[in-house]
């Protein structure tokens, strides 16, 4: 492997690494494989709580893990229906945009100590957060474009929740910045390696981050935007065929990006493993980061087995009251801890 890398001009390496990042790991292919696992896990875990089997008959020996593949095949043979009054261009293209933008943040989250992208490494935290924040805007447009009252209400709910939970989220990111004093995620992990993981240094910020993630990805109890018994999947109500598969997959990919960011910011990323080369510097630390992220994801999707749905006005009030106060406390805690560090 090293010989192969030596043949490539050195100036190409950052570009190649970016392509590897985006397409293989932790990008596209890893996400596809993970989507299989996490959707299967969510359904199996909920089924275990609910005294039933969950997916079983598609590849019975592996416990039905290929169910998603079967679903996708079924989706792809369905007709894609565009409602009469729908705004055609946004309606057709936004699911693809959503999918792309939900994958993009992974490009800026380093999974190993040697991060040499074509993108400025000093701003990785800022860039990854910025790209996660684009998605809700598209969701609002998507809800409006479908020309359906329920999707419109879903879009409005998304807008309300977006505003009330983005502020605590940004404050949690800000307190992480204050804590580590850098926007470079590689340095963030180095600092955590030297001292303690961020979740111990500032547990409040981690909590606020997780609440905002549950909100942003529409996990229970914050599945207010989708709300199947009120709005029948809100902004996505008019989608059929593969497009439905896309828009249903977006929250999981978002969840993956956020969890990766969480594992780097608060769980110490690839610490305590560091090495050199393609294998020791990228793949093994990458797997460590990845496993931490998957554990976070599993914990978050498990909430579905426990909680019912929260209400819009109460969620907005919570976002502006106790979640916001917690975020402020996290900021103060960070200011204190950064002195100690």
């Amino acid at each position: 492997m090293m010989d192969f890398l030596n043949l490539i001009p050195v100036t190409w390496l950052p570009l190649l690494e970016s392509v590897f990042y985006a397409l293989v790991f932790p990008g596209f292919i890893a996400i596809l494989l993970l989507a299989f696992f996490i959707i299967w896990f969510e359904r199996k875990a909920a089924a275990r709580v609910q005294m039933r089997y969950g997916p079983l008959w598609v590849s019975k020996r592996t416990g039905g893990i290929a169910q998603l593949l079967a679903d996708m095949i079924r989706f792809s043979f369905q007709e894609f229906i565009v409602p009469e009054g729908a705004d055609l261009i946004p309606f057709v293209f936004l699911p693809g945009f959503l999918l792309a933008f939900s994958v993009l943040p992974t490009l800026f989250i380093p999974i190993g100590p040697y991060y040499s992208h074509i993108f400025p490494a000093g701003y990785t935290l800022l860039l990854s957060v910025a790209f996660t924040l684009v998605i809700p805007v598209y969701l609002v447009v998507l809800g409006w474009a479908a020309d359906n009252k329920f999707s419109f209400i879903g879009a409005l709910r998304e807008a309300y929740l977006l505003i009330s939970y983005e502020v605590p989220f940004i404050l949690a990111i800000a307190s992480a910045f204050l804590l580590y004093g850098t926007l470079n995620l590689v340095e963030v992990v180095t600092i955590q390696e030297r001292s303690l993981p961020g979740i111990i240094l500032n547990p409040v910020a981690a909590l606020v981050f997780l609440i905002a993630v549950i909100r942003a990805t529409g996990r229970v109890p914050y599945d207010i935007v989708e709300a199947d018994s009120e709005l029948v999947f809100g902004p996505y109500v008019e989608y059929s065929s593969l497009m439905f598969g896309f828009v249903m997959g977006v929250p999981y990919i978002e969840l993956y990006s956020y969890s990766l960011l969480f594992s780097v910011l608060f769980l110490g990323g690839w610490a305590p493993i560091t090495g050199v080369g393609f294998l020791g510097g990228l793949i093994i630390p990458g797997i460590v980061t990845f496993v931490k992220a998957v554990i976070v994801m599993c914990a978050l999707v498990f909430l579905r087995g426990v909680y019912p749905r929260y209400k819009l006005d109460k969620a907005v009030r919570a976002g502006w009251s106790w979640v916001f106060y917690l975020a402020l406390i996290a900021l103060l805690l960070s200011a204190f801890m950064s002195r100690v560090l």
């Binding site: 709580v49 109890p221 709300a227 018994s229 426990v306 909680y307 019912p308 749905r309």
Partner: peptide
């Protein structure tokens, strides 16, 4: 109706 599939199944 309140979004808890667990209680529904139980």
């Amino acid at each position: 109706f309140m979004g808890s599939s667990t209680v529904f199944m139980w």
